Amino acid sequence: MAANGGTKAILAALFANAGIAVAKFAGFLITGSSSMLAESVHSVADTSNQGLLLLGQRTSRRRATREHPFGYGRDRYFYSFIVALMLFTLGSVFALYEGIHKVQHPEELTSPAVAIVILVVAIALEIYSFRTAIVESAKIKGDASWWGFIRQSKTPELPVVLLEDAGALFGLVFALIGVGLSVVTGEPVWDGIGTIMIGVLLGVIAIILIVEMKSLLIGEGSSERELTAITEALAADGDVERVIHIRTQYIGPDELLVAAKLAMRPGLTTAEVAAVIDGAEARVRERVPAARLMYLEPDLDRAISAPPR
C-alpha cells in the first residue's frame, strides 16, 4: 500500500521503537536499572501499538456488508482505543509498580555508563520518529493548535503517534535523569524515582488518548466549521428556503454521514425537487469532501406555510 502521512509516521515509529526496545533490554540486563526496564517495556508496547494501528488501517478498508452497511471505517478508532489501553497497562502501570518497588528496595546500578549511552542513542532515534510525526501532522493540522489538532482530528493515527512519541521522548529524558542522578549522588533511589516519573507521564498520555478515542469510537459529528460549510452549501440554492434540521456523524476518519431535512420552495415538481437535492449534494461534497454519505429529505417549511390561527 502507498504510505500516506499516517502510515509513514506509524512506520517511522515502528522501526525506531523496535530498535530502541532491543537496545534498552540489553542495557537493563547489563545495568539492572529499573528505568531501563520500564523504558524497555514501554518501547515493546509502542512497537506493538504501531502494529495495531497498521492492522486497523488494513481492516478498515474492507467492503461494506449487509451486517455492516456503512463499512468498517471505525476499525481505526477501535484499534487506536486498544493502543491507548495498552499504553496505560503495559506502560504506565508497569512503570509505576517497578518504580515504587525500586524506591522501597533500591539496588546499585552496574555499568551505568552503558545505560547512559543507550539512552542517548535512543533519544536520537526517538527525535527522528517524533519529527516525522510532526511533519506529517502539520500537513493536515491547518491553523489549529497542536492541542486542538489532538482533540479535533478525526484521523486517529497521527494524534496517537504524536503523543506516543512525545511520551517516549520525555520518558527517555526522565530515565536519563534518574540514572544520571544515581551515578552522581551514589543513591540508586533516583533510578526508581525516574521510573515513577515515566509511569505518571505515560498514565496522563494514556488517559488523554482513551478519552479521545472513546469519543471517536461512539461517534462524533462534524466540527463547527464543517457544519457551517455544509449548512451554507445546502441552502445556497434559491429553491431551498432553509435547513430545517441536520445531523452529522463520522463513520470513519474519511467518511462523514450527513442527514438533513430541507424546506423547499412550494410548487416544485418531483423532477425539480430531485434536481435541487442532486445540486445540494454536489455543493456539499465540493465544500466538504468527507461528506460521502448524504440523506436529504425535502419538506415544506411548516413554520412559514402554516396558516395563522
Rank of each mutant, 00 (worst) to 15 (best):
Ser111Gln: 12
Pro112Ser: 09
Pro112Gln: 06
Pro112Gly: 10
Ala113Tyr: 09
Ala113Trp: 15
Val114His: 12
Val117Pro: 00
Val117Met: 14
Ile118Met: 06
Val120Tyr: 12
Leu125Ser: 08
Glu126Val: 01
Ile127Phe: 14
Ser129His: 03
Ala133Asp: 04
Ile134His: 13
Val135His: 12
Val135Lys: 15
Val135Gly: 03
Glu136Cys: 03
Glu136Trp: 10
Ser137Thr: 08
Ala138Met: 06
Ala138His: 14
Lys139Gln: 12
Ile140Pro: 03
Lys141His: 05
Gly142Met: 08
Asp143Trp: 06
Asp143Glu: 14
Asp143Lys: 15
Ala144Cys: 07
Ser145Pro: 03
Ser145Val: 06
Gly148Phe: 06
Ile150Phe: 11
Ile150Met: 08
Arg151Asp: 05
Ser153Gln: 10
Pro156Thr: 08
Leu158His: 01
Pro159Ala: 07
Val160Pro: 00
Val160Asp: 00
Leu163Glu: 00
Leu163His: 01
Asp165Gln: 02
Asp165Leu: 01
Leu169Phe: 13
Phe170His: 09
Phe170Val: 15
Phe170Trp: 12
Gly171His: 08
Leu172Ala: 07
Leu176Asn: 02
Leu176Gly: 01
Ile177Asp: 07
Ile177Leu: 15
Val179Asp: 04
Val179Trp: 14
Ser182Val: 02
Val183Ser: 03
Thr185Ile: 09
Gly186Thr: 09
Pro188Gln: 11
Trp190Phe: 15
Gly192Pro: 03
Gly192Ser: 15
Gly192Ile: 07
Ile193Ala: 02
Gly194Lys: 00
Thr195Asp: 04
Thr195Leu: 05
Thr195Gln: 04
Thr195Gly: 02
Ile205Met: 11
Ala206His: 09
Ile207His: 03
Ile208Phe: 15
Leu216Asp: 08
Leu216Thr: 05
Leu216Lys: 15
Ile218Lys: 11
Ile218Cys: 10
Gly221His: 11
Ser222Leu: 13
Ser222Gln: 10
Glu224Gln: 13
Glu224Met: 13
Arg225Val: 08
Arg225Tyr: 08
Arg225Ile: 04
Glu226Tyr: 12
Thr231Met: 08
Ala235Glu: 13
Ala235Leu: 10
Ala236Cys: 12
Asp237Pro: 00
Gly238Lys: 15
Asp239Met: 14
Asp239Pro: 04
Val240Arg: 05
Arg242Trp: 11
Arg242Asn: 13
Val243Arg: 02
Ile244Cys: 03
Ile244Gln: 07
Ile246Asn: 11
Arg247Met: 14
